[in-house]
Design a protein around this nucleic acid. Structure first.
Lengths: 154, 154
DNA sequence: TATTGTTATACTCTATAACTATA
DNA sequence: TATAGTTATAGAGTATAACAATA
């Protein structure tokens, strides 16, 4: 059984990934999955997913935004955003108000309850973000952000 | 219409993301999506997805590997790996051989055709990887990999 | 009893087309 | 004609449980 444990423990160290392990793309995926998993866990007490928090943050920053705009900046198809906003609205966190001069669109804003929940969620998010930043090590945050932005624009 | 164009062009610059834009997690997602999209396009001529290439690379590096091990190192559930290997095997790229002393498992290896296709795919991958590395800018590759590894271990 | 590969299934995320009511 | 929101649907990717054969 010692033999078995040694075999199992050594897998991630001894099995070569054929160069994949020194690839930015592969580690980028592992890192992104880990970050989302960690943030999702941090948001669990508030019953919010990562996208929900993103939506609330954007609306808080610019009340009156239309769904289309939120979809654009968050890279979410406007059709997929409908259900997300529906749920936030049903929970009384977000309000779909009228847009003066355009009866097709909605002006989104946070309710008092939404604002209150967001504040708590932001505290959890800040704690999560601190963990991520600590993991940067020698890499400067600003340079990391710049690098990720350039990669995102490939 | 000038007004309309200006409104549209300015969205990504003028609409605040509520702090999200200076967050490692958010940009990590955008970067990862872009990298996978770019790599997928690069692999299109060979009809390979990103995971397919990863599997081929790992098998090439260590012929005789079992599916379970590949799933572990690539973070793919062994049940989801079945179809992936099925397809590669059906295309004559991968072979499921016997494992001496364990008739439950398969020893995976590349066929001649699989090896040949992989060489071409590797060239395309190298070109893609070069683009990603160029986007790193001032960030040292080794330090970036180390940072991503630490984030992945959150 | 535990493990390998397998099957079946479900759930989330994402993508596309078409509809409505407005503009 | 074009646009905002909506509906329906389909496709990935991922996750879980249970099974047969074998250890």
């Amino acid at each position: 059984m010692i033999e078995a444990r040694e075999r199992k423990d050594s897998i991630s160290e001894e099995v070569s990934l054929g160069g994949l392990e020194t690839t930015v793309g592969f580690l980028l995926r592992l890192a992104q999955v880990a970050v989302f998993k960690d943030l999702l866990a941090a948001l669990k007490p508030f019953d919010l997913r990562v996208t929900d928090l993103s939506v609330l943050l954007v609306i808080e920053a610019t009340p009156g935004l239309q769904q289309r705009v939120i979809g654009e900046v968050l890279r979410v198809q406007r059709s997929n955003l409908v259900t997300i906003i529906d749920q936030l609205e049903a929970r009384g966190l977000v309000r779909r108000g009228p847009v003066p001069g355009d009866r097709r669109a909605y002006a989104l804003s946070l309710t008092v309850a939404g604002e209150a929940l967001l504040q708590k969620a932001k505290a959890a998010h800040a704690q999560h973000d601190r963990k991520v930043l600590d993991a940067l090590g020698k890499v400067d945050k600003a340079q990391m952000l710049a690098a990720l932005e350039r990669i995102a624009a490939l």
